[in-house]
Design a protein around this nucleic acid. Sequence first.
DNA 1: ACCTGAACACCGTTCAAGT
DNA 2: ACCTGAACACCGTTCAAGT
Lengths: 235, 235
Amino acid sequence: MTVTQQARTPRRRAPRNTLNPDRILDAAVVLLDRDGAEAFTMRALAAQLGVGTMAVYSHFRSKEEISDAVAQRLLSEVELPAMGEAESTADAREQLREVCRSVFRLFADHPSALQLLTTRPMRGDEAIAVIDRMLGLLRAAGLDRVDAARAHVALMQYTVGSALWNVRRDRALCEDGLRDRVRARLADLPADRYPALTELVPELAIAQDAGMAQYELGLDGLLTGLIGPGPRSAR
Amino acid sequence: MTVTQQARTPRRRAPRNTLNPDRILDAAVVLLDRDGAEAFTMRALAAQLGVGTMAVYSHFRSKEEISDAVAQRLLSEVELPAMGEAESTADAREQLREVCRSVFRLFADHPSALQLLTTRPMRGDEAIAVIDRMLGLLRAAGLDRVDAARAHVALMQYTVGSALWNVRRDRALCEDGLRDRVRARLADLPADRYPALTELVPELAIAQDAGMAQYELGLDGLLTGLIGPGPRSAR
DNA sequence: ACCTGAACACCGTTCAAGT
DNA sequence: ACCTGAACACCGTTCAAGT
């Protein structure tokens, strides 16, 4: 777990105003996407920016405040589909799919964002726009107020869960030979004790690796259950 | 974030064999459930056990190894419903609901377990039994091999996401006055920009707080979408 | 105002030493 | 074999000091 010390070329004093909140957040996102959440350190962030560790504290009060700001910025990048009013349930359903896919994609593109967004509650105005859009579409799909609110929460829960599952799996695959060890263990399972599992090992592996395709399968299922079958429900 | 130092009453040397893996895991679960994942520290664990910090290392190679063992133990506590063969799709659906609810309940009872289980992949034999049971039920419900595997992944993703959502909300509620601040912000939203959201603020609050009931709503939706409507689909 | 290094209270873990 | 304290390389953050 311990990392070898960087060669500490003695840095000259940074000129004034090299730093500002935006530059800091840019660097934070780079660091998170490239090296992961556990490498997101005040010291690493400052090094990335070419300043002393404490310089960052002139612009943010704490690491937590930076994390919140990063989450906020990433949420603002969720693309809401350009739209006219949804004119039918089918329209609404399709646009709903699009918004959910955007949120899922955000997590796929910025895996470390997930940790920020799941650890801390979604504050911030950016999340608001996404939520409003989803609720409007659920209403347009014909749900009453109570059902729309419930459906929205269910969709977000499923989306977060799917994203988390994928991120976890991607990270696990980086570990040395874990994939092979898991495969070996699954191949060794006693078929009489675990008949269903042993029969479905290859299908499970495929489903685990299917990423967005797997997400959409569950999403379609959930939408069907919540707002009724879509126009092409014969799959 | 810094914690005031404990009064360090000088501890007398612990007799040999006071420690064993089981006692260590018991203490770890207590610590996690009571004080949360961020308070789960090798030093705190040792203190809880009344031994020096390094004593634990005679039984586990690292903190990571302890975390894995805790996750394993908690998964072994998931109650699988006693069952005969599922004799109809309706039977299978009902038993499936029961298994999913057990997994969800595990997370509700041991919120910090979620972090362990979502950070590291589910290794260990205990998870295997749960997975096998779910797959068997999905097959009994009439799904083919590919669809059963996909449905299982979707159900687990939704379950993990819902549990995470609830844990996050519970933790957020502990923060000082956060609830009121969020409520105030939602009340202040411009109704012309966010028409759907402003209209549904109370319904959303209810759905967020509904816990297991909200989980079941999405679960029913998902099951309906994945394996078809249940016997009492007229809700 | 903004950037700096030293210092403090934490953390997981290595190591040599006690029993 | 099992438990111990000192020590090391980290971490976030406080503080007084530079410019």
